[in-house]
C-alpha cells in the first residue's frame, strides 16, 4: 500500500500516522473503507505490530478512523477536522512561498493580479463542468 522511510529521523509511528492521514484526506482511502489489519500491515512493511497498533490508536483518537470490535478499523466519514488540517498545511506552505516571493522582489500588485488570475481560472474550470 505504501512504503516507509526507515532511514528517516521521524519515528515510524509518526510516519504511519501521517501517511494514513494523507491517504484519508486525499480520498484514496474512502469513507467506511476497511484499513488493513495490524497483522497484514506488519507483515507487508516488516515493522513492529505494536507500532502499528499505536498509530491506529492515535488515528482513532484524532477521529480519522473508527474501529469495530472483532471486525477491524475503518475510515471515518469525511470530517471537518480533516479539511481544516489540510487547509492549515496549505496555509503554512503559502506563507513560506509568499515570503520567498516578496523577498525576491514581488510586489503586492503583482501578487493581487496573480490572485485574481487564479480565481478566474478556478471559476472558469468549474463553469466547464
Amino acid at each position: 500500500m505504501f512504503d516507509l522511510d526507515l532511514r528517516s529521523r521521524k519515528p515510524i509511528y509518526e510516519q504511519l500516522v501521517d501517511k494514513m492521514k494523507e491517504l484519508i484526506i486525499t480520498d484514496i482511502l474512502k469513507s467506511d473503507e476497511q484499513l488493513p489489519s495490524v497483522r497484514t500491515l506488519a507483515q507487508q512493511l516488516t515493522i513492529n505490530p505494536n507500532t502499528i497498533q499505536r498509530a491506529y490508536r492515535e488515528l482513532e483518537a484524532e477521529g480519522y478512523i473508527y474501529s469495530i470490535k472483532g471486525k477491524g478499523s475503518f475510515v471515518s466519514p469525511a470530517s471537518v477536522k480533516a479539511t481544516s488540517e489540510k487547509l492549515n498545511k496549505v496555509k503554512e506552505e503559502l506563507v513560506k512561498l509568499l515570503s520567498e516571493a516578496m523577498y525576491l522582489g514581488m510586489t503586492m500588485e503583482q501578487l493581487q493580479q496573480m490572485l485574481s488570475e487564479i480565481e478566474e481560472a478556478v471559476k472558469g474550470g468549474s463553469n466547464d463542468d
Binding site: 526507515l6 497483522r39 506488519a42 507483515q43 516488516t46 515493522i47 513492529n48 505494536n50
Partner: peptide, 27 residues
C-alpha cells in the same frame, strides 16, 4: 519474527550494536 509477534504475541529480546537494525524493529 514480526509475523510471529503479530499472530502469536511472541515476546522478543534482542541485543545488538547495529542501532539502525533495531530501530525499526523494537518498541
Amino acid at each position: 519474527l514480526v509475523q510471529d509477534v503479530a499472530e502469536r504475541e511472541m515476546t522478543i529480546m534482542i541485543s545488538s550494536h547495529n542501532l539502525r537494525e533495531v530501530e525499526d524493529l523494537c518498541d
